[in-house]
Design a protein around this nucleic acid. Structure first.
Length: 580
RNA sequence: GCGCCAGUGGUGUAGCCUGGUAUCACUCUGGCCUUCCAAGCCAGCAACUCGGGUUCAAAUCCCGACUGGCGCACCA
């Protein structure tokens, strides 16, 4: 049986300390991996370069929030409802089915938004039985893709392991807006673990139950989804696979991807605005920079029916792998104000930002003065709600109120509170209305968010796969020096004549300068080179007889195997220049 | 979660049908040797995925679990 590349790469990764299956001595469990020593270094290198892009150059600021998230947050974000599949189990054969799908198939009724009990009732009413054995179906249960936990003793407070790092940013939006002194646009990132209780995770590191995300949230004015520095990326050519071309069967599948500058793509409306376009370009540059072959990269737009519940547009950076084909490694989504709106509604906090106009506007409006002696007596505790509603009314509503009060002498005020709509009858003598001309200096808006979200584990796998090289007499990882875990191997050619001491000293010098170097004097020199090749170490320094005469050593290049003589005194600078 | 297939040192394997605790190679460790690409010699470490059953005796036969692969389902 021929081993495919996935197998060879994972085998090497396991043997050499890149990736291990977790909990292996207890039999292992699917969907979890450990990063070994080299894997951890590689991962950290990737993440640090990512920070270089987003934190240093894009001026996004990084935060770090808890992975355990209380129920309310994920209820508000839609994850509790949208992450839950209703499942029903056959009492006889124990087979389980998606309850909603089953009902829709059997009755062609709509199950959208139905509760578990309603679904169960529908099953009983229509006498739906197990499609496999005809047995009776049990109760409808939730299968939630989020890991559930409880907070505190007694387990009263339900919590989940976060399904994405993004929510941590949205939750702190008010603080963050304050940090950025309420000026749009601004960006925030978070790098950390996220959790999804996949039904059947496979494909090793590609689909994990616990994985690392690096997410950026770029908050923009809803009417200005532009990017200040779009000019800098305009000429970047990107491979795009738009939704309409995916669905158009008249196009040859091989021809569906179009190579186009991102500037042109935005001008022609293929990419709907600069902000998404900008991050597509940045993503291409980042992936190229860490060593991803751009010929194996494409940006695929989500089809309307595959979009997440919070997004109106999404482009995935997909990388081609030999076994799995194109896999999603980065998602660049326009989440609109979905999350902020949801959290604003559920928490009651005003998450809007005040944006000043360039010039103040003069607007005719009304000022309302309540007759407190009267309304206090009538509405009692509800008065606060009414006051708040009146304050928040926009001009249109206000005009309607004024009109109705004048014409009919009364107005029915509807206020939403705690999920209920309350109605209050407002009579003419409850209030005094004055027409005024106000200078409006600006307005409160709820920002939209553009989200580039990177799956670090998948990117790391793709990088390993693409770096994997086989030659007649060796296997090596063609990792870029800047991502390679070990930068330099240092060897004495033979173990005598003080060569080991000199080599050890060179290793120490490199380490002191922050360069990860490894000393090795075991076995023949060729064997040591091979070991370093296999883990992707780009350079090997060898101390030989000539070193004793002229103070030079050889530096071997991993890919070409060519050697160059360099003075020991210059070795640190030499290596440093090669690592950039 | 369902169906099919597989699981022996770090890696690749022999043994399984026809029960009697394991073959070989590479790697790895220590030593000798060695002046540039897995050389050689000596010594050593190291495995039957886990649990149950049958049996005097299980890597081997049976059942289950776990893991991996493939197909179906799932994939905000």
């Amino acid at each position: 049986m021929k081993r495919d590349k996935y197998e060879k790469v994972m085998d090497l990764a396991k043997r050499r300390g890149y990736l291990w299956s977790s909990f292996e001595i207890y039999g292992g469990i699917a969907g979890f991996v450990d990063y070994g020593p080299l894997g951890t270094m590689l991962k950290n290198n990737i993440i640090n370069i990512w920070r270089e892009y987003y934190v240093v150059r894009e001026e996004f600021y990084e935060i770090d929030s808890p992975t355990i998230t209380p129920y309310e947050v994920l209820k508000a974000s839609g994850h509790v409802d949208n992450f839950t599949d209703p499942i029903v189990e056959c009492k006889e054969c124990l087979e389980s089915f998606r309850a909603d799908h089953l009902i829709e198939e059997c009755t062609s009724l709509d199950t959208e938004g139905k509760s578990l009990r309603e679904l169960e009732q529908m099953i009983r009413e229509h006498d739906i039985r197990c499609p496999k054995c005809g047995g009776e179906l049990g109760e409808v249960k939730r299968f939630n893709l989020m890991f559930v936990t409880s907070i505190g003793p007694g387990g009263k407070r339900r919590g989940y392991m976060r399904p994405e790092t993004a929510q941590g940013i949205f939750i702190q939006f008010k603080r963050l807006a304050g940090f950025f002194r309420n000026k749009l646009p601004f960006g925030v990132v978070q790098i950390g673990r996220a959790y999804r209780n996949e039904i059947s995770p496979r494909q090793g590191v590609i689909r994990l139950r616990e994985f690392t995300q690096a997410e950026g949230e770029f908050f923009v004015h809803p009417r200005e989804k532009t990017h200040r520095r779009f000019k800098e990326v305009e000429e970047e050519v990107v491979p795009l696979l738009p939704a309409d071309r995916q669905m158009d069967n008249s196009i040859d599948p091989e021809e569906k991807v179009i190579e186009i500058t991102i500037g042109e793509a935005v001008r022609r409306g293929i990419v709907r605005h600069e902000a998404i376009g900008y991050f597509i370009a940045i993503t291409k540059r980042f992936l190229k920079d860490i060593g991803i072959d751009v010929k194996k990269l494409r940006f695929r737009q989500h089809l309307p029916d595959e979009m997440a519940h919070y997004a109106i547009d999404c482009w995935d950076a997909e990388i081609y792998t030999e076994r799995f084909g194109w896999i999603e490694c980065v998602g660049i989504a326009d989440r609109t104000d979905y999350d902020l709106r949801a959290h604003m509604k559920h928490s009651g906090e005003d998450l809007r930002i005040f944006v000043e106009y360039e010039e103040p506007k003069e607007v005719e409006t009304y000022e309302i003065e309540l007759n407190y002696r009267e309304v206090g007596r009538i509405f009692k505790g509800d008065l606060k709600l009414i006051e708040k509603k009146l304050k928040e009314m926009d001009n249109e509503e206000m005009e309607k109120l004024v009109r109705e009060i004048e014409e009919k002498g009364r107005y029915i005020l509807r206020v939403e509170a705690d999920g209920e709509v309350k109605e209050f009858e407002i009579l003419k003598d409850y209030l005094k209305i004055r027409k005024v001309v106000k200078k409006i200096r600006g307005e409160k808006i709820l920002p939209h968010v553009i989200e580039p979200s990177y799956g670090i584990d998948r990117i790391l796998y793709c990088l390993l796969e693409q770096a994997y090289r086989e030659e007649e007499d060796r296997v090596y990882l063609d990792l870029k020096p800047k991502v390679a875990p070990i930068k330099v191997g240092v060897f004495p050619l033979v173990n005598r004549d003080r060569l080991p001491e000199i080599a050890m000293d060179i290793k120490e010098r490199l380490r002191r300068e922050g360069i990860i170097a490894q000393y090795d004097d075991r076995g023949a020199i060729g064997r040591r080179y091979m070991r370093m090749d296999e883990i992707g170490t780009p350079f090997c320094i060898t101390v030989d007889g000539q070193t004793l005469e002229d103070g030079t050593v050889t530096v071997r290049d991993r890919n070409t195997r060519e050697q160059e003589r360099v003075k020991i005194e210059e070795i640190v600078d030499y290596i440093k220049s090669k690592l950039e």
